[in-house]
């Protein structure tokens, strides 16, 4: 089984603070991490390899420092990692990102399954997985919570939707996105950490994977951020006072008005 995992390096969101004076994000000391949702994708890939044999290749599109995130995935069981990095990729929206990833997947070739996280922590869109599947013209299943079986170039999974779970079957190769429910990611092993230190991380540029530069980066992105602002957090909170009975009384009164 040739397993490809797509990851993204994101700022650890709990550490995002807003400077009240300048109203901008404070980035000092903000650590970059592997998108937590991608950790489930990686873990599932490694588990599939353990079940069915094969190889796990991790790809990410990002600036040179994203190499750090790729090394981390090697410590967690990935065999190989490739950094897609080129000035032409900067400012890519989800369409352009999916396009670049699809070109990298095409170069890797012979993949059986591509696994993505449900969404990223910073962008929150969850669009790259499904967009990637269409660019590769292969089936797509979102929110996978369990891989039941892979057999004869078919995969049977459970996925989460609002009303419950669906059991779905499709042919391979396919793209899936995974829900947090699917597994509990492992911690880095000592052997993995050693391997991660010395592993060679390949860097592929636009030319390496045949990306048409007018379809990537800011030039190739259909969407553009035109304004960024901070949500107003003027919340008028009312703390209810009095004895516990009085507080509950007041709360019930207010509740009855709302519902």
């Amino acid at each position: 089984m040739n397993i490809v995992i797509c990851i993204k390096q994101v700022p650890g969101t709990t550490e995002i603070k807003i400077d009240p004076k300048t109203n901008t994000l404070v980035r000092e000391g903000v650590k970059s991490i592997v998108n937590p949702f991608d950790a489930y994708a990686l873990e599932e890939g490694v588990r599939l390899k353990e079940r069915y044999g094969g190889k796990v290749t991790v790809i990410t599109m990002g600036p040179p420092q994203a190499e750090e995130a790729l090394r981390e995935t090697i410590s967690l069981g990935a065999d190989d990692a490739i950094l897609l990095s080129d000035r032409a990729f900067a400012g890519s929206d989800t369409w352009a990102t999916s396009y670049v990833l699809s070109k990298a997947a095409a170069k890797i070739a012979n993949y059986d399954i591509i696994i993505c996280g449900r969404q990223t922590l910073d962008g929150d869109t969850g669009q790259v997985g499904p967009e990637l599947s269409e660019m590769l013209k292969i089936p797509f299943i979102s929110y996978v919570s369990k891989v039941e079986e892979i057999k004869d170039k078919h995969i049977r999974v459970q996925r989460m939707i609002e009303e419950g779970h669906e059991e779905i079957e499709t042919t391979l190769p396919a793209v899936i996105t995974v829900a947090k429910e699917i597994n509990v990611p492992r911690l880095p092993s000592l052997r993995g950490s050693m391997k991660a230190k010395t592993a060679k991380i390949a860097v592929w540029t636009a030319a390496d994977i045949g990306v048409e530069t007018d379809k990537a980066g800011i030039s190739g992105s259909p969407t553009r951020v035109v304004k960024i602002f901070f949500p107003k957090r003027e919340h008028k909170s009312e703390m209810l006072e009095g004895t516990l009975e009085e507080q509950v009384e007041k709360l019930a009164e207010r509740l009855e008005k709302i519902v």
């Binding site: 369409w95 929150d124 869109t125 499904p130 967009e131 269409e134 609002e162 969407t223």
Partner: peptide, 23 residues
């Protein structure tokens, strides 16, 4: 932006080569 909308609308956008803004 339901489970279904978030799954198949991006595919339509990908095929049309157009922008999609989530949520």
């Amino acid at each position: 932006a339901t489970a279904m909308g978030r799954s198949f609308i991006p595919r339509v956008a990908a095929l049309l080569y157009t922008g999609l803004t989530a949520d």
